[in-house]
Each structure stands twice: as C-alpha cells, then as structure tokens.
C-alpha cells in the first residue's frame, strides 16, 4: 500500500516540528531540568514520531522524509533512553579527593598487576646487567647512562655552575609532555588486549632495573636515591596507574567471566579510565616540575638526605592519598 504522502506530511508535521524544537532546546541547554509534564509530552511526541516512521517503513516511503524522521527519532532516542547520569557540574576538589582515589581503589587489582609486570621487568633488567655488563648498551639506550656511574657521580658533584640555568622551565615542560604521551600510549595499547601495555610496562621495568643495578653495583646508591626518588616517587606510580588503565581496558575487551555485552562492559569502565588518565596527567605535571627543578641538582647544591627525604615523603603522601582519600564509607556506598 502507498500512502498519500502530502496529506501524511501535512497532518504529522506539527508533531515533528514540536519534537525537533524540544530536542534543539535540550541539546542547546543540557543542564535544563524538565518538569514531569514536559517529559511526558516529549515522550508522547517521540512515540508519535516513531509510529510515523514505522508507517513510512511499512508503506512506500519517500527517502528524504524517511531520513528526516530517522534523524529525529535517533536524536530523541538518545535523549530519552539514556540512563547514565548526566554530570551537571564538575567539582574539581571532589573529583581530586574522592573520585580519583575511589576509582583507583575500585580497580586496584589492575594496579597490582601493572606493578608486578614492572617488577618482573626490573628483575630481568637487573639480572641481565649483572650477568652481562656488556648488554648495557642494549638495555640502556641513553647516552648519559652509558658511562661508568662513579665517573658520572664525580662529574655531577664537581660541577660548580647551574647546567640547567635558563632551561629549567623548558626541560620541565618537555618532561611533562613526554611522560604524559608515554602514559597515554600505555593506556591506548590496552586495545591490543593488553599485550602492548604489558610490553611497555615490562620495558620500563627493564630500564629501571638495569639503572638501579648499575648504580648499586658501583656503590652509588645514595646518589641513585637522591637522583630518582624526588620525581620517581610520583612519576613511576603515574606510569603504573596509566598501565592500570590500559589493563582495565584490556580486561574489559577480553571480558573473561563477564556475561554483559562488550559495549555494555566498555560503557561501564569508560568513566573510570578517563578519571585515571587525568589523574596520571596531574601527577606527571608535578613530577616534571620536581625533576627539572630538584632531581637534577646534587651535592653540594642539595644534600642527598634532603632529596631522599623529600621523595620518601612524596611517596608516603601519594600512598595515603590513593589508599585513604575519599573514605571507605564512600567506597562501600559506591559499590
């Protein structure tokens, strides 16, 4: 059967126009709270329009009108059937002190896995360097780490001028952006079912383990701690959290033991992944500042004890923040 197209359009157009105007208003002002009557009316308009679309689909349809109705129904469907909470306002302090640590704790097993992979990499790097010192060129492909640690320490401690004078801010900016890029990559590689994230974490661990072994074997543990702890206490956990986000993504993709559809699973973790990666970016900003303005200065400029103490305090505060901030009650309520 073929319907009288013109009569059909003329008869139903007021309803479509009203729905379109209501949707335009909703899209322009997403924070608007609708009254119950307005909501019921919107739903009525939506149902009428979907019925019109169904009629057009059943009978002969003019493609333009059908596309127009499909577009209207699609927009209305998105507004009416969306059940996820619409965040009306962003509270930075609440996000920082509640949402971020709670999200971290909710997925803490992924963090422990991220840490374990890095530690395995550390052990591998350490053993490889200990058994075959000639492998240093392969394990540590960075010019400033190639030489003898004792010589480097002697050189650093004999410097009487500020090498980074005039470049500290640029260096800090470079570190922030570079580390954030690596962190985003650790997250994004979760799409390789976690293989990329695991390789990246393992590789970072190998470098860290090799550096630690190299300096400890050379008797330069104090220098190493003074050099790495101030920024590493934040930077390394940040990379681990980025790995945690990547592993969450991978676990969601694999979906082992989960009966929900992939799209539903992804929908349930997307907010958490974004929270974690923004948290990582914040941590790396701090780490970049510390590395440029503190870590690169050694004795006699700054005593190692002070640097080590600073790094230890950072680590304790970060651990407390991630473990306690936001409160256990809030965690339970969330669950």
């Amino acid at each position: 059967m073929i319907i009288d197209l013109q009569r059909f359009v003329e008869h139903n157009r007021p309803c479509w126009t009203e729905l379109e105007q209501a949707l335009n208003r909703l899209e322009a002002e997403p924070d608007t709270r609708m009254s119950l009557e307005s909501l019921q009316h919107l739903h009525l308009l939506y149902e009428q329009t979907t019925a019109d679309l169904a009629r057009l689909s059943t009978f002969s349809a003019e493609p333009e009108i059908r596309r127009y109705l499909e577009s209207l129904v699609a927009r209305a469907y998105g507004e009416i059937h969306e059940t996820r909470e619409r965040r009306r306002r962003f509270y930075p302090m609440r996000w920082l002190f509640q949402t971020l640590p709670q999200t971290f704790r909710r997925h803490v097993r992924a963090f422990w896995l991220s840490l374990a992979i890095t530690l395995v990499g550390c052990a591998f790097g350490g053993f490889a360097l200990a058994f075959d010192p000639a492998a240093k060129a392969v394990l540590l492909p960075f010019g400033h780490l190639q030489g003898d640690p004792s010589e480097r320490v002697a050189q650093e401690e004999s410097v009487s001028t500020d090498r980074l004078a005039g470049h500290r801010t640029t260096f800090s900016a470079f570190l922030m952006t570079h580390n954030t890029r690596v962190s985003i990559l650790a997250l994004a590689l979760g799409m390789t079912w976690g293989a990329g994230t695991i390789i990246l974490l393992f590789y970072n661990g190998v470098i860290l383990g090799a550096v630690v072994t190299d300096y400890v074997a050379a008797g330069q543990t104090r220098f190493l701690l003074g050099w790495l702890l101030p920024h590493g206490a934040i930077e390394i956990p940040a990379i681990l959290i980025a790995g945690q986000a990547g592993l969450i993504l991978a676990a969601t993709l694999i979906g082992r033991g989960q009966r929900a559809r992939l799209s539903t699973r992804l929908r349930s973790v997307s907010g958490d992944i974004v929270t974690l990666i923004f948290g990582v970016a914040l941590l790396l900003i701090w780490a970049g500042v510390v590395e440029a303005f503190l870590s690169q200065y050694h004795e006699p400029f700054i005593p190692y004890a002070a640097k080590i103490a600073f790094g230890a305090v950072e680590l304790v505060l970060l651990s407390l923040f991630l473990a306690k901030s936001g409160g256990r009650k809030a965690d339970r309520a969330k669950l």
Binding site: A74, Y77, G78, E79, H81, E82, R84, R86, R87, S263, S270, G271, I273, V274
Partner: peptide, 10 residues
C-alpha cells in the same frame, strides 16, 4: 554513541 544514546564526555 554506537547504541544511539547520548554521547558522554568519557
């Protein structure tokens, strides 16, 4: 959104 729902910031 692949399900036709409102796209979220995340």
């Amino acid at each position: 959104d692949a399900e036709g729902l409102r796209i979220q910031f995340s």
